[in-house]
Amino acid sequence: MSRYLYYPGCSMDGSGRAYGESLIPVCEKLGLNLAEIDDWNCCGATEYVGVSLSPAYALIARNLAIAAKSKTDGEPLVAACSACYLNLAKADNYMKERPQLGERVNVALDAGGLHYDPGSVEIRHLLEVIMNDVGLDQVRANVVKPLAGLRVAPYLGCMLPRPDPDHRWKNHERPDDLDQLLAALGADVVDFPLKTECCGGHMTQIAPKVGLELIRRLVDEAEHHLADMMVTVCPMCQINIDAYQGEMNAEFHTKHKMPIVFFTQLMGVAFGLDPKKMGIGRELTDARPALKKIGKEAQPAADPVAPAHRPRPDKRALPMPRMESEATAAAETPAEVAR
């Protein structure tokens, strides 16, 4: 078993509980030994950095200092929440990039008897560890119940592939790592065009109209591609798309029912673990009906449906600009230029 330090993040025993409870047994199966770091604190999410710089980075660096102390032999620190991962990686990088910030953070840490040398802990995300350290062959070897017949839309969200301070991703806008992993589980993977578009993050809390529109785009597109469910790597994306789907439906008068689960939950199901223990059923938009499709005959011709034609404009409506006038306008312009 290879040992990794583990930073769960606050949502793992709250709204993202299904993630927390599924990733531990899945990692055990894959031979990853996750050692939770002692008495870790919140990473500050996207809120603290927008209030005060030095305290925000000192808050993150306290976790890094604890991780550096509990290292026995160069183990990386693994986070599964995208925001936690990015905050940890950013703090480590910016303390190097701006020595003044690094110094300041260490003066602050000193008040608590801690110290952190930037660069001393390797910070990684669980998905990337599974892809690179474990490998797809090992994943395939563990699959006992292939997810054939289940059409999934892989959804990474923003903060994992971008801004990528440690240069771990080949593609920042259309990476296919999660696609490959889900295909290795036997699922029918949709080429989801919005896989790294934003779910709105905290917008559902501070500007609901903006947030709900971003959620609508994602769910609409997943439905358009006839996905049975979306699969994510981030607790924020999960709660936005899952829990706010009701409010989104009310806002836009739609009737979407698009379940979204964490990739570790599907891995657990494919590895033959009890779906209930993988946190299936904790989502508000029930994923269980979709999971029943596993093993059944795949639906034939699952091509994306063409969007419905726009209704013809009302005859009483204002006239639209016509082609002739456009043609005359085009003829006039070069003459003007010549003059």
């Binding site: 606050c10 025993d13 709250g14 709204s15 993202g16 509980r17 299904a18 008495d39 870790w40 604190n41 005060s52 710089l53 030095s54 305290p55 980075y57 000192a58 808050l59 306290r62 300041r104 953070v105 003066v107 602050a108 840490l109 000193d110 008040a111 608590g112 008897g113 801690l114 904790r282």
Partner: peptide, 26 residues
Amino acid sequence: RIGILPHRIRQRKQLHAILSRAEELE
């Protein structure tokens, strides 16, 4: 999926000391 009570870390005093020193520096 909702924790009724907040989860408190053990070394809150240490965290406060760190954050207030950082705030002074800021």
